[in-house]
Amino acid sequence: MKRISSILILLLLITACDDGRLTVDTIDFSDVPAQKCSDKDLIYKIKDNIMLFIEIPGTTFIEDQTLDGVPIEVPISGTVKVTYRKYASTVSANNICGAAPDVTPNLVEQWTATSGIIQITSTAIKTTNASNNSTKITGYTYNINFKNITFQKPNGSQQYDNFPFGNYTKPIANSLTFGFNQQVDKSTCSGSDKIYDFSGGEVFTLDVADFPTLFANEPTTTPRTVLINATNKLSYRLYSGVITNDYFCATTIPATPTLIQQWNAVDGIEATSGIIEVTTTTLGAGFQHTINLKKVTLKKGNSDFYLGDNYPFGTLITNP
């Protein structure tokens, strides 16, 4: 009897030592980049014969930064899925991507997430131009983490309070090329104080409150300056099609092309940033106003980029 009791106790101890941790807990995906299927909304990581993937709408990965401590949160559901698989031998994207995924090698085991939250923290990827210190957003990195996720596996279930998936990187859909010709004189509409520049679907608009003072018809000895603020505005817009001069001066703004993005300049700080600078010289019977933007930052949502230490907006010709 004592012998039987000892065996039962030993079995209980062995069972207690098995806390149900999934084998995936020991797998290191840190050196494996996250990829996306080209023809479906599926983000995956593959290492040898194992894979971990997420089925999630592509619109979840917005082109904007998240605020510190405020990630995007998406509940796991019937349409948002997290799956871990183990195969008999090495696998590839062909086993999950495409209309008819490969059926070989054989699937050995699968764990499906039944609940939990997918947390996504996004950060802008920027490049810097060394000549003027301007920056450009080329894409976004999305750090993905599973919170309180429960996997259903063949022999039971397992919950993880925190399960890092890693980073997924995506280039931006519409690159801001800034293809403006800075040598071309800028325009205004009759009766309007807005100065605009356009190239293709790109538009740069400068709207100054005290237009007559900043663009006075007299040569300057020192540049005139104003700060970007609520009344002195600078905006960059990207449209779905080509913009023409008629777009700006029409009584009713045309319905097409449509606005895709708008970036507004951040308010300036005296002698520090966000400065509109104008230098005026005579030009025949008129005047040429050369406009430079000093240390201007443009922002959309939580994302921003630096226009540079000095950005030549161009020239405006006026006549007395």
Results as ranks from 00 to 15, higher is better:
N132H: 08
Y160Q: 10
F53W: 10
P71C: 09
T83H: 06
E73D: 04
I172S: 06
T66Q: 07
T127F: 03
F151T: 08
T60S: 09
I62V: 11
D102V: 09
D64S: 14
T104P: 06
K126H: 10
G69M: 06
I172H: 00
L176R: 02
D64Q: 14
L176F: 03
T177A: 13
I120A: 01
I96P: 00
T150F: 03
I137K: 07
S92C: 05
T112Q: 11
A99S: 11
T104N: 14
I56K: 00
E73I: 04
V108R: 14
A93M: 02
G139M: 02
I96T: 00
N106P: 10
V80I: 13
N133M: 11
S175N: 11
L176P: 01
T169Y: 08
N133G: 01
N174L: 08
V103P: 04
N148R: 06
S131D: 08
V70S: 10
T150E: 01
S134P: 09
V91M: 07
L52M: 14
A124D: 12
T79P: 05
F151G: 00
F163G: 03
P71D: 05
T112N: 10
S92W: 03
F163E: 03
I62M: 05
N162Y: 12
S175C: 04
I62T: 13
V103A: 15
G98Q: 08
I117S: 06
V103W: 10
I172M: 04
E109F: 11
G69F: 01
S92V: 01
Y84V: 11
N174M: 04
L67G: 10
S89Q: 08
F178L: 11
S157E: 13
V91P: 03
I96W: 00
A173K: 14
T177W: 03
A100F: 03
F180E: 07
I117C: 03
T128A: 14
G166C: 11
Y84G: 09
S175H: 06
K170D: 00
N133F: 10
A93Q: 04
K126D: 09
F146K: 00
V108W: 10
Y84R: 15
P101H: 12
A99T: 09
N145V: 13
T135V: 09
N155H: 14
P101S: 12
N155L: 14
D68Q: 11
E63L: 05
Y142N: 07
I172R: 00
S89A: 15
A88N: 12
Q110V: 15
I96K: 01
E109Q: 12
T83R: 12
K86S: 11
V70I: 13
L176G: 00
Y142T: 06
I118E: 07
N181R: 09
G179I: 02
A124E: 01
P71A: 07
N106D: 15
I137A: 06
T177Y: 13
D185C: 04
Q65A: 09
P71Q: 06
A99I: 08
R85A: 08
A124N: 06
P57D: 05
Y87T: 07
N148Q: 08
K126Q: 15
K86L: 05
Q158W: 13
T112E: 10
T90R: 13
S131N: 11
S122E: 01
G139F: 01
F178N: 04
I172L: 02
T79Y: 07
